[in-house]
Amino acid sequence: MEEGIAIRAENICKSFGEGDSYIEVIKNASFTIHKGELIALIAPSGGGKTTLLMMIGCVEEPSSGKIWLGDKQVFADKWLTRETRKIRREKIGFIFQAHYLIPFLNIIDNLTLLPQANKTDDKTARAKARELLKYFDIAEKEKAMPSQLSGGQNQRVAIARALVNEPQIILADEPTAALDMQRSVDVVKMLKQIALEQKVAIIMVTHDERMLPYCDRIMKIEDKTTIFEEQQLQKNSTHSD
């Protein structure tokens, strides 16, 4: 397998329901995403973006196909491990439209939850969490509760949380939808920087065309399958399919 590949999907299909309620959402989607790339995923509402993201994230089980994360195959018409949750906590960071921080835990405890699950020792976990909070300019809020932070601050904490387990892949479902234009651009630039610095592959669902210039490639879902849109603007996009 080629070096530097973060995600590979081969002919993944997904349908829901049976009989009258049967719908096919994704059909024969195949793609390769490299480490360090920020991919924008676009499709109309109901186009299957979240479904695709959740399949890559080992949350939703595809109907058929093959998926590799890094050099490890995780899906071949069925999960190749019983512990998909372990893959998620070790390899994947999730970011959503809402921050979804745990409201009864303070900021630092929210951040150390995943390292704790990964059996990282407490001191290391806290140090890592503090480093991230500092990076995102919210170091002084570590003892605050999520309800005491602004929307933008909470979203930054949520991004920090997605990074704290040093994932190889970040899946972001409309991370900027709740933010204003300036903050959205900040977040997307931040994601691009993270992708480059930490060699993480990031797939970001977005409805906002103004965010596209900051992404390396644009993946579209058309006729239930994924295609990459050619983008000339990019300077540092070295990959092509």
């Binding site: 906590r89 994947i92 999730f94 009864f104 995943l114 699950a117």
Partner: peptide, 15 residues
């Protein structure tokens, strides 16, 4: 909701 999120992130049931 929070429990689902924790599960999605990969937090084990035991925790």
């Amino acid at each position: 909701k929070e429990i689902s999120i924790m599960k999605l992130m990969g937090i084990p049931n035991s925790m």
